[in-house]
Design a protein around this nucleic acid. Structure first.
Lengths: 226, 226
DNA sequence: ACTTAGATTTCGCCG
DNA sequence: CGGCGAAGTCTAAGT
């Protein structure tokens, strides 16, 4: 990885056109060809001002950096005019170990499949990823009274999720044996509008806590965790 | 901006939980408190492995960096165990000039409002952002035969855009005087599925070129164009 | 190869 | 402050 701190001007032409007036910025060039321009305190804190994803061609000649990339029939071009280089270092970082994630929607689905009672008391799983004509429902369950219950799981429950579950329910209820199927939207966070629309459509909502789910999963470990 | 290159282990707990095994990485700390962890060639090239947006509290004590942030009732926490610091430099970048963008959807809309004939020959603008119950239509126009035409503008025309325009048309046509209103989806790039669905629903499509729009903006140039 | 859906999406506008 | 839509979204999975 090469890190250049320099007073510079930047212009980009590609899908859109942008310009950056003279200022001190960080140019970050990764081994894989990724190129980024960073300011210390721009508007969007975790996003580079300009960037180009691999595959790129980087040319550094006489106070001018040109980063190019073929984009369909045209070309993406990032041009940096270097007015003063304050620092220019390169570090070999070797092979990086990948990021292990835990707690995304997939995990939420698995945990709730493991124990659907967190969605509604008495719920029993029939099948995960139950297929319908318009896509798979996350969980198909039976309620305490043996009635069918379709569960859609999201990390954030929005109005779109209610629409999605509604489409599934239309399909599911087309089968007379499941005409009485209920629907529940389960999410870590439920938007008020989603709750309102769900209520309007007779769809239930359940707010689930990942920590609680996890705590119930390995009861013996919770004693030592955190 | 502080740039630390170090062999380190990273763990994050917050909305989800992640772990990074020992490896050499770049720690980037911006003046505004933004904290990022970068590898040289991770999977997602233009996105940090871990990050935290301001406001953050950064503690660097004895081979351990702890970045904390209040997140609702809970706390986001990023912990970096430093095993070997290879470099640690700080640069003052002063005030950065902002990024000037040109060529996003907004610009496309303004250019087409200026000259709707690029959507369809003979089209005349009646109003930009014409209100309906389900949101504003980008352009409301009259065709050469004086018939109403609603235009939805996207940078990339997807199936969603066709759905959106369909909803608008339902509302617009509810008024008997505009029952015959046509719809056109105008985009820089049209997805084949969007074209298919549009055709199915009797909605027109128009592929517009930003460069051509821009070139035709000066009337004297039109004489030589095409 | 293309399409669909998730993301610690982020970010900006507008109420 | 919350909801909604755009983004140079990106990325990964399934078909």
């Amino acid at each position: 990885m090469r890190l250049i701190v320099a007073r510079c001007e930047v212009s980009y032409t590609g899908r859109l056109t942008t310009r950056l007036a003279e200022s001190v910025r960080l140019l970050m060039i990764k081994e894989d060809g990724t190129f980024m321009v960073w300011s210390d305190s721009g508007g969007q804190s975790v996003k580079p001002l300009n960037w180009m994803t691999p595959p790129t061609v980087v040319e550094l000649t006489d106070g001018l950096v040109v980063v190019r990339k073929r984009a369909g029939r045209s070309e993406d071009r990032l041009e940096i005019r270097l007015l003063e280089v304050l620092s220019d270092v390169t570090h070999d970082m070797g092979e990086a170990a990948g990021l292990e994630k835990d707690g995304v929607e997939r995990d939420l689905q698995l945990l709730l499949a493991d124990d659907p009672t967190h969605v509604e008391a008495g719920l029993r799983l029939v099948k995960r990823e139950w297929p319908t004509d318009v896509g798979p429902v996350d969980l198909m369950c039976r309620a305490e009274d043996d009635g069918w219950v379709a569960v859609e799981i999201k990390r954030v429950g929005t109005i779109d999720a209610v629409e999605q579950l509604s489409r599934y329910l239309d399909c599911i209820r087309a089968d007379p044996s499941r005409a009485g199927c209920r629907g529940i939207l389960a999410a870590q966070q439920l938007k008020p509008q989603a709750v309102a629309l769900a209520e309007q459509r007779g769809i239930g909502t359940a707010c689930v806590d990942l920590a609680v789910l996890r705590g119930e999963r390995e009861p013996e470990l919770t004693l030592f965790a955190v």
